[in-house]
């Protein structure tokens, strides 16, 4: 059984922005960066659980809206000097459609 789920067309997410996906595994933030790469993180900042989906996206990073930690989109790791990690999910873009793998 394939674990890849089709989510939405790429254009549904604003460039340098994000959408929240409600899944069986809770809320997942789906990000699209300036080069149209797509990343998925659990929508909870490792600091105090802030919704990362609401942050400002740049390069492969997002800055949390609550206290300004920066989280690496491709690993879920907080950028120095902060420490912490949020769960990262796999994504791929195929013919303009975004797929998410919750495994």
């Amino acid at each position: 059984m394939s674990e890849w789920m089709r989510i939405c067309p790429l254009e549904e997410i604003p460039r340098l922005g994000s959408r929240v996906v409600q899944t069986v595994k809770g809320e997942i933030a789906l990000f699209r960066n300036g080069s149209d790469e797509v990343f998925a993180l659990r929508d909870q900042c490792p600091h105090k659980g802030g919704p990362l989906s609401q942050g400002i996206v740049f390069e492969r990073k997002v800055t949390c809206p609550l206290h300004g930690w920066t989280i690496q989109l491709d690993s879920g790791e907080a950028v120095e000097p902060d420490h912490g990690c949020t769960h990262r999910y796999r994504t791929r873009v195929d013919k303009g459609e975004i797929y998410l793998n919750l495994a």
């Binding site: 802030g50 809206p65 609550l66």
Partner: peptide
């Protein structure tokens, strides 16, 4: 450019600690 605004200004409301 909404993506260059902090969430409060993007959503036109103040985000709270519980989201």
């Amino acid at each position: 450019d909404p993506q260059s605004r902090f969430i409060n200004e993007r959503a036109h409301a103040n985000i709270q600690k519980d989201g």
